[in-house]
Design a protein around this nucleic acid. Structure first.
Lengths: 289, 289
DNA sequence: GCCTGTAATACCTGGCAGGTATCACCGAGG
DNA sequence: CCTCGGTGATACCTGCCAGGTATTACAGGC
C-alpha cells in the first residue's frame, strides 16, 4: 500500500518549508502561493503516513521524521540535479565528434597552486588526456559541488573537508603555519603553538565565511584571500594556513610554523559511483606525482 | 534557460527504457501505454538539450549522455526511495513515545554468525541501545539495501562488496577455505591453492546468483546455501568461503585452507551522510569488539 | 506485394497542481 | 473585553498536462 513515488516537486517543497519553518516565506521562495504549499505538504504527510511538521500556532517545528526527510531529501535533490548536470555535460561533449570527455575539477581558490600545476601538466602529457576545466570554489564548497554535479572531481583538504561519501586518494601532507604581520612581536618566534595564536589580545583570529554565515568570535569577517592578506599586512589579524600558503605571502607577512597544528592532507576526491575513463586517468596521474 | 526540474517520474521512465532498450516492454513494465512514454522521453531530451537514445528502426541504443543519465538516475532514484523509507521508519518510531530509534542491519544470510552474535550481545548491553532489526540479504545485496534505505547499516565482506560511497570500519580479517566433498581425493590435502580448486575436472566451481543472473561457467547455478551444501555433499561441486563458514559444514564436507586466496575483511558500513546517534553507538560497540 | 513489429503522431479527456478568497485560531495590545 | 495582525487550513475554481486510444510511418522478412 501507500505507493512510493515522492515526486521531486514534493521534496523541493518540503525542504523549503523545513528550512524556512514558515509556510508563507517558503511559498514566496518557491514562487507560488501559500495554500497549495500547505496542501502539498499535507498530502506528502498522508502519503508517507507520518507527521513531518508540528504546526504550532506560532510557526512550525520539525518532528523526528521531518529531520530525517530534510537530510535525506537534500541528498536526493542533490543527486537529481547532479544527474541532470552531468547528463547535459556528457551530451554536449559527445555530440560534436565522439566521447570527447571533459572533466570539471573543483579547487579551493588560491590553495596549493604548485600541486595543481604539477597535476595539470602531468595529466596534459598523457596520451588520452581529456580536457580539464578548473573550477575555483569557495571555502569548503567542493563537497557541495561534487554532490550536485557542478564538479566531477575535487582537491580537498582534510580535516577541513569531509570526505564522507566520496572515494579519494591521498596526495600530499603538509604542516600548518601562522601568518602574522611582520611588525608583530610574535613574528620573531621560531615556532608557535595553536594556543599562542588563538589567544593574542591585539590580534584576533580571522573568521572565514561558510555558506554566507560566520562562526562567532571577535575577529574580522573574511571571505576573500586578498582581504585577509591586507588585514594581516595592516596588523589587524592573524591567520592559520597550510604550509603551501607561503607562496602568496606579502613582504609585510611573516610565516611561523605551528608545532601542534594537525597536518593538512590534500586529497583528490570524486563521487564514489563514478565510472568515467577520463576520471580514472586523472586519478592515476595524480597518485603518481 | 532550460529549468532543471527532472521529475522522478521522468527518471523512472528513462531508466525503464534504458534497461529494456524497448519502448513497448518498458511501457508494459511501467503499467502504461507506449505513446505517452515516447512523448515523455522526447520531452526529457528536449528539456536536457541532449539526445539520450538512438532510435534505430530495430530497437533502441543509448548515447553517451544516455549512459550517464542511466547511472546517475539510478543513484538519484535510490536516494529518493531511501529518503521515503527512512522517513517512514523514523516517523513510526517517534510517534509512540519519543525518539525510539530502531536500526536495520543487513547481513549476508548465513555468514559470520559468531561475529554477529558478539556484536548484538555487546550492543544490547549498552545503556542507550536502540532496537536492532537484522535483515538477511542475498549475495552482495547489502550495498543496494544501504543505498535505497531498506537498511541503515550492514556487515559487508571486502573484496566481494564494494565499499564505494559508504563509510566503514574494519571488524575482522579471515582466510578462505575450499569446501569439498569429504570423499574427494583433494579433501585429503593439508592446503590448496586457488589454481587447484578452479581447475578440478570433475568438480566445477558453483556459480552464485547475483541479481537474478549467473556468471558464465560449467558449474551448477546456486542461490541458496542449503542447496550448495547439498550439492557439495553429493560430490557435485566445490565452493570457496571465508573461514567462518566452518560453522555450518556437514559431516560430508571437508574444509581445506587456501594458501593464496585474498583474505576476507568484514566491515561494518553505513551511508556516509548518516547522522544517527543510535548508529554511532552501534559502530562504537562494533569497533571495540 | 503483404504482414509484423517498431517508434512517432494526432487527438481527446480527467485529474490534479496552482491560484484567489476566505476561514479559524491565537497572542498581543489598547 | 474586543480588535488587530499574523499564522496555517479550507473551499472552490480553472487551465494544463499526463495518460489513454487510434492511427501513421517506416523497415525488414517471407
Amino acid at each position: 500500500m501507500a505507493m512510493d513515488a515522492l515526486e521531486t516537486r514534493e521534496l523541493r517543497y518540503f525542504v523549503a518549508v523545513a528550512e524556512e519553518l514558515h509556510f508563507g516565506r517558503a511559498a514566496e521562495r518557491l514562487g507560488m502561493a501559500q495554500p497549495p504549499l500547505s496542501r502539498a505538504i499535507q498530502q506528502l504527510e498522508r502519503r508517507l503516513g507520518v507527521g513531518l511538521l508540528v504546526r504550532d500556532r506560532r510557526g512550525v517545528a520539525l518532528t523526528g521524521a521531518g529531520e530525517m526527510l530534510l537530510h535525506e531529501g537534500r541528498a536526493a535533490l542533490d543527486a537529481i540535479t547532479a544527474a541532470a548536470r552531468r547528463t547535459r555535460r556528457a551530451g554536449g561533449a559527445d555530440s560534436p565528434d565522439g566521447p570527447r570527455n571533459r572533466l570539471v575539477l573543483a579547487v579551493k581558490a588560491g590553495a596549493s597552486h604548485e600541486l595543481l600545476h604539477k597535476l595539470l601538466d602531468a595529466y596534459a602529457a598523457e596520451p588520452d588526456a581529456a580536457e580539464i576545466e578548473v573550477l575555483p570554489s569557495g571555502t569548503c564548497e567542493q563537497e557541495e559541488m561534487l554532490r550536485d554535479g557542478r564538479a566531477d572531481v575535487a582537491l580537498m583538504h582534510a580535516p577541513f573537508n569531509s570526505l564522507a561519501g566520496f572515494d579519494s586518494e591521498e596526495l600530499m601532507t603538509e604542516g600548518q603555519i601562522a601568518i602574522l604581520p611582520s611588525a608583530h612581536p610574535l613574528a620573531a618566534r621560531r615556532t608557535l603553538s595553536l594556543a599562542d595564536v588563538g589567544d593574542i589580545p591585539d590580534l584576533p583570529l580571522a573568521r572565514w565565511a561558510r555558506r554566507g554565515t560566520y562562526p562567532p568570535g571577535p575577529g574580522p569577517e573574511i571571505h576573500d584571500q586578498t582581504q585577509l592578506a591586507q588585514l594581516i599586512a595592516l596588523g589587524r589579524t592573524v591567520a592559520v594556513f597550510p604550509d603551501s600558503a607561503r607562496a602568496w605571502l606579502w613582504a609585510e607577512h611573516t610565516a611561523v610554523p605551528l608545532t601542534d597544528a594537525p597536518p593538512v592532507v590534500t586529497h583528490i576526491a570524486w563521487p564514489a559511483h563514478s565510472r568515467s575513463l577520463a576520471l580514472a586517468g586523472l586519478i592515476r596521474t595524480a597518485t603518481r606525482l
